[in-house]
């Protein structure tokens, strides 16, 4: 009945800052970010890997924060909405989301932005259909998705790679 699991010390770079923290093996990354580091911008929507609200970047790639253990992030780099905001990486998307009213309650938005950012970075010539498919792992209950698709398409259209 006792919780016998040992604590692990992890070194993880979160939003550019090195963190050295003890974690329980069972703690998932999103709880670590929210509870231990106070980074509340990533949200917990389902804790079974479906809704996408906890999407963050692990070593530059989007992952579900509830399907990664904090201990797995040891010696890795994690970027959350707070870091993507501060670095300016998400700035164009954020501006487009605001301009297009691509968020309502905002609970899905940090995860949605992280997902959209990977699309913009890896598939700059994505079509509207591809945008819809790409974000279909991120659930939004408020918008009709159209404003989100419009906002991402705006950023894709203004991306220099497409102009080439």
């Amino acid at each position: 009945m006792e919780n016998t699991s040992q604590t692990h010390l992890i070194n993880v770079t979160v939003n550019g800052h090195p963190e050295r923290r003890p974690v329980q093996p069972r703690q998932h990354l999103i709880d670590f970010l929210r509870d231990d580091l106070g980074l509340k911008g990533s949200h917990v929507g389902c804790e079974h890997g479906v809704c996408g609200a906890c999407t963050v970047r692990l070593d530059g790639k989007i992952v579900r924060g509830c399907l990664v253990l904090a201990v797995q992030a040891d010696r890795k780099r994690v970027d959350t909405i707070e870091g993507l905001t501060q670095s300016g990486a998400a700035q164009a998307l954020q501006a487009a989301f605001v301009r297009r009213n691509a968020l309502q309650c905002g609970f899905c938005t940090p995860g949605m932005l992280a997902a959209a950012l990977e699309l913009v970075e890896t598939k700059p010539s994505a079509t509207r259909t591809e945008v819809r498919e790409w974000i279909s792992g991120n659930y939004c209950r408020c918008t009709g998705y159209q404003a989100i698709v419009d906002a991402i398409c705006d950023v894709l259209a203004s991306s220099p790679e497409v102009a080439k």
Partner: peptide, 12 residues
């Protein structure tokens, strides 16, 4: 591959 869940899942 594109039919397997979503990008964030496929990345891990």
């Amino acid at each position: 591959a594109p039919h397997i869940a979503h990008r964030a899942i496929r990345n891990l």
